[in-house]
């Protein structure tokens, strides 16, 4: 897999999607994750609906295109998702990175673009960083709201 395959149009488009960029004024939960390899940083804010679904999501990303694309795709595909679906998507994307393919949830098929990253193991963390931040933000929100169902 070449670097050219890595930087395909869909990935660049996802990275350029700024629709969920920024901070929420009153998040239920937040998390910041740093990439120890390169110092990249992502901060995610979320709110959870009473049924524990992701009702709002924003990211503030100082990172590479892969991380930006991943953060953007989370916004465009997982808003409204349950915590279970977020976890399933996180696991499926990890599998896509490690194996080059995987069964992504229907709503999250867009993450299939990261199959091109499989051979670039040093970049897997770039794709997964937003998921790690999202997972921490969900836990933060559940701890604050007392809703972990």
């Amino acid at each position: 897999m070449s670097s050219l395959d890595l930087y395909q149009r869909d990935l660049l488009r996802a990275a350029a999607d700024a629709s969920h960029a920024g901070r929420l004024p009153r998040p239920d939960g937040s998390a910041t994750v740093n990439n120890p390899l390169c110092g990249d940083k992502i901060t995610i804010d979320i709110t959870l609906a009473p049924d524990n679904t992701l009702s709002a999501y924003t990211h503030e990303t100082e990172a590479c295109v892969l991380c930006q694309a991943s953060a953007g795709l989370i916004g465009s595909t997982l808003e409204g998702a349950t915590a279970t679906l977020i976890t399933e998507t996180h696991q499926a994307v990890t599998q896509v990175l490690e194996q080059g393919s995987g069964t992504l949830p229907t709503q999250a098929k867009g993450f299939g673009i990261f199959a091109a990253v499989t051979d670039h193991t040093a970049r897997h963390a770039c794709v997964l960083m937003p998921f790690e931040a999202l997972t921490q933000a969900v836990k933060d929100a559940q701890a604050k709201t007392g809703n972990s169902s």
Partner: peptide, 10 residues
């Protein structure tokens, strides 16, 4: 981003 530059330069 430097990682993107390096990846593409590769």
């Amino acid at each position: 981003h430097p990682h993107d530059i390096c990846q593409l330069a590769d």
